[in-house]
Write a protein that binds this DNA or RNA. Structure first.
Lengths: 346, 346
DNA sequence: CCAGATGGTGGAACCGGTTCCATCAATCTC
DNA sequence: GAGATTGATGGAACCGGTTCCACCATCTGG
């Protein structure tokens, strides 16, 4: 048994307004959309009728007629990752300002992602989509590009699709240089699981930056000082333990994100290592909790990445200029308490 | 210049399918909605036509026709509060499972809240709304209740509106008892700003629980050991500093949420107090970061509160039974490292 | 003074679904 | 075997906007 529109009073329609004002529906529509060619008195009469009837246009009818949903989809990995939340926050603000709705879908697994992508690709569900740290791939990508739906990626890259990224290589370099300047030479890296998962590789890119910084000093990372694991505190902890229990452990570890860095800190504690005395730890993202535990980290303009993505998406939807395929946002170092000179060099 | 539906190929409509299958639109609709009274062969033919045309029904047209938006609104305070995020996560899961869309609006200020409430109250925007730690008030409340829109509140109470809350009094009691059992007698409390702001009072309710626990032992809280400030780490820090700098400071502090508790920890560090030796700190929420800093806290079923809210809202939308006006979810204590016996009693 | 512009206006057609009603054949009932 | 019931089906009407076209006054220039 389905209940339909029975609740509340049925709101007035544009026809009611037209009748009340003694004009045609076309005229009311013109008034509503602030279009010219409406006499001053007529306009006043229509406005009065709208007021009296407490008329509010039906968004749904408008959408059907305009063939625009006024809604954009945000697809992200697990909704609890702090950096993702910050980005969504930026998106939300811009979208609201533009009078658009946002629906959120999360894609924790590859299967779920493909399902979500397919759903979105269906014509008419949304006017555009923003992907955060996920990118459509394979069949899903084909479907979505065939549908012509405007898409912008954040923290992900895919040939031919506009994307907003932070300068991950530079971030890695900055991290590496900071540790080098402190006197570290044995530097480790804890990252996300590698390749194919959800189509994002920022972890690897940051590693590349670190590597480059070391190369400038003719140093390199011992392969046994690199570990990759699940994007979680536990993952960071396990990776760090593996690295630190080796024969000649590093004196500093760069983590691909703050959550992993927290795990590294935990591992250090477990092993009785003092931070930063015995081990320096450097995170990435500068999420809220980083300040809490005094984590030195690379700050990314997370919220800005969201607003920028919206700007690009709206331009694509309106057909107003394409803009560059890639927008790179700057990052910078925030020194707190988890990095310092290595004990041996004191 | 407005671009209309010009991008991508125009997708097939139900009429195209009907023509292709050589049946009427009514029949196609019946097949689509899995309704009976369709012959087996006819159904097969229709399905074949759908397949051939890659037909996907227009959600917008469906909504207009059904007079249902298949969308619900989630209104929350600041989108960065971790407990809010967790709740939204629960909501998102349930809603997706039910095939509904969710739009998120945040209401950081009273003005913004009223604006959002008004927007939502407009008939036809959404089928229902969930408020998290905010509640419509005043004119907005009237408008929304006049519109007959189903609403469920989480972590907020308003007469006559169904709401999901955790047992804040009991949580406060549990917190109080835990500290009493450890031997504390001078217990302080750091909470959110008091009354009218956004219409939520859980901070005060938790305080009441603590007070009750103390009363069971014929103790009470020294009024100078209570402080209320902004819901942020800084707020907690300032409140704690005020309390701890008094003449006869407490040996333990209960915070109304984990974020405030982090501020309290910071204040303790600033003042050179050892935790839990000189000061025990007890949080509330059990957010992710609580584990990170080994904060003893009261665990609330945050995600579950979201799923429960959706369950209630869907029931209200379908008109299926009203259910109780108030649903209270249980809480429990998680002992970690920030609480211990007071030094004086050792 | 008249053809042609132009501002203002009404309303049909359309967007793409759902639903209800009329119709018709097949089966059931007594 | 006539009348009633039931299953299957087509299609018009409807949901509530937007847009385009036809039409009517005015106003303008020649």
């Amino acid at each position: 048994m389905i209940m339909r529109g029975t609740r509340g009073k049925v709101s007035a329609t544009i026809a009611d307004v037209a009748r009340r004002a003694g004009v045609g529906v076309g005229t009311v529509s013109r008034v509503l959309n602030d279009r010219p060619k409406v006499g001053a008195q007529t306009r006043a009469r229509v406005l009065a009728a709208i007021e009296e009837l407490k008329y509010v246009p039906s968004e749904t009818a408008r959408r059907l007629s305009l063939r625009r949903t006024q809604t954009i989809a945000v697809v992200s990995v697990h909704l609890v990752i702090p950096s993702v939340i910050e980005r969504i926050h930026g998106i939300e603000r811009s979208l609201t300002a533009a009078g658009l709705d946002m629906i959120i879908r999360n894609a924790e697994t590859v299967e779920r992602r493909d399902e979500v992508v397919r759903e979105i690709a269906r014509a008419g569900r949304v006017d555009g989509a923003i992907f955060i740290s996920v990118a459509p791939q394979g069949e899903g990508q084909e479907e979505i590009s065939a549908s012509g739906l405007p898409v912008v990626l954040i923290d992900a890259r895919r040939p031919g699709v506009p994307h907003i990224v932070c300068d991950d290589v530079e971030g890695g370099r900055i991290a590496g240089r900071h540790l080098l300047e402190l006197g570290h030479t044995r530097i480790g890296f804890v990252g996300d699981p590698p390749s194919p998962r959800l189509g994002v590789r920022s972890s690897r890119t940051r590693l590349r930056g670190v590597t480059e910084a070391l190369q400038e000093c003719a140093l390199r990372i011992d392969p046994s000082h690199i570990a990759e694991g699940e994007h979680s505190r536990l993952g960071g902890q396990q990776s760090a333990r593996k690295i630190l229990s080796g024969a000649n452990p590093p004196t500093a570890i760069v983590a691909a994100n703050d959550t992993l860095a927290f795990g590294v800190l935990q591992a250090a504690r477990d092993l009785g290592l003092e931070v930063p005395g015995d081990l320096s730890v450097l995170g990435y993202d500068d999420i809220d909790a980083a300040d809490l535990v005094q984590l030195t980290t690379i700050h990314q303009p997370l919220r800005e990445s969201g607003t920028e993505a919206v700007r690009r998406l709206l331009a694509a939807i309106d057909g107003t200029g394409k803009g560059p395929l890639r927008t790179v946002l700057p990052v910078h170092l925030i020194v707190r308490g988890t990095t310092g000179p290595p004990r041996t060099s004191l």
